[in-house]
């Protein structure tokens, strides 16, 4: 495993598959910490509310129980959740964060304990100043507890909902008039260029009009150079429509069964 960029960690599995973890930044981690602090405060309030009635029986034992329970909740909250919830606390779950081993594996109990005990140093002198500085300096955004335990905090993306169909389907595609050229186009478009074209289509409504025209102009220029379609098919096509048609060609299977063999599947 090695650092790919400052905000991602790359893992190569024994199966030879490479994947990257996006590292959690200080802001999301801070919000998760605030949410967890609220949860701890709520839990201690509930415990106090319940136990305070026992003071009528024994004030001494009630106060002792409160002292111990406050300590257990404040110290054990993160440890218990990170152990039983595979590296997540309620705050981290809301923010889609997870603590994992720096090699991508699940946490061991020892790692959970160590990263949470060293937290007392990260909190020094106030508001995680030491931990925050350590995160800024560390290449993997690790606070001291993470460094000691060999852990990182990663972000999980929300579940993917492809919207490609809404973008490109159901519209007439003049490039399909020349199926042999369309097939050649599928062979020649580099994946990175295809991905950029999809990105541009997905985000086109967010672009300024001038930027939109310029972007699709550049993309169309790059794509037009790959395969020469007859002028009668492409001459009248605006750049954005051309790009959309190319995306449909390269990302979807042709309607005729005979073309299926040409896909990468």
């Amino acid at each position: 495993m090695r650092d790919e960029r400052i905000n991602r960690v790359r893992v190569r599995t024994p199966e030879g598959v490479v994947f990257t973890f996006p590292l959690a930044g200080p802001v999301t981690r801070c919000i998760a910490w605030v949410l967890d602090s609220i949860a701890v405060a709520t839990a201690t309030s509930v415990v106090s509310f319940v136990l305070v009635w026992f003071a009528l029986v024994s004030f001494d034992f009630t106060l002792a129980a409160l002292t111990v329970l406050f300590f257990v909740i404040s110290t054990g909250y993160t440890m218990a959740f990170e152990y039983f919830w595979r590296g997540q606390t309620p705050g981290k779950r809301v923010m889609r964060l997870r603590v994992v081993d720096a090699a991508g594996m699940a946490l061991t109990p020892g790692q959970v304990v160590v990263r949470n005990l060293v937290r007392v140093v990260d909190e020094l002198p106030v508001l995680y100043l030491v931990g925050g500085i350590a995160m800024m300096v560390s290449r993997r955004a690790q606070r001291l507890g993470d460094l000691a335990a060999g852990t990182i905090v990663v972000r999980h993306r929300p579940v993917f909902e492809p919207d490609l169909e809404a973008l490109i389907h159901g519209k007439y595609n003049s490039l399909r008039e020349a199926p042999h050229l369309a097939a050649r186009l599928r062979q020649r478009v580099p994946p990175v260029l295809a991905a950029a074209a999809v990105d541009a289509l997905v985000r086109r409504e967010q672009l300024d009009p001038d930027a939109r025209v310029a972007l699709f102009g550049e993309l169309a220029q790059a794509l037009r150079g790959l395969v020469s379609f007859p002028p009668e098919i492409v001459a009248e096509l605006p750049d954005e429509v051309f790009v959309r048609n190319v995306v449909e060609i390269v990302h979807t299977r042709p309607a005729t069964a005979g073309m299926r063999g040409s896909t990468a599947r």
Binding site: V11, T13, P14, V17, F19, T20, F21, R86, G87, R98, V100, D101, G104, M105, A106, T108, V154, H156, R157, V159, F160, P162, P191, V192, A194, A195, V198, D199, H251
Partner: peptide
């Protein structure tokens, strides 16, 4: 494909499953 959304979703899934399958 280099399709970023699908790739990110699969990376997330594989990352989580990797942690479950390979553990210390």
């Amino acid at each position: 494909a280099a399709e970023p959304e699908i790739r990110a979703h699969l990376e997330s899934l594989v990352g989580r499953a990797y942690g479950e399958v390979h553990r210390h």
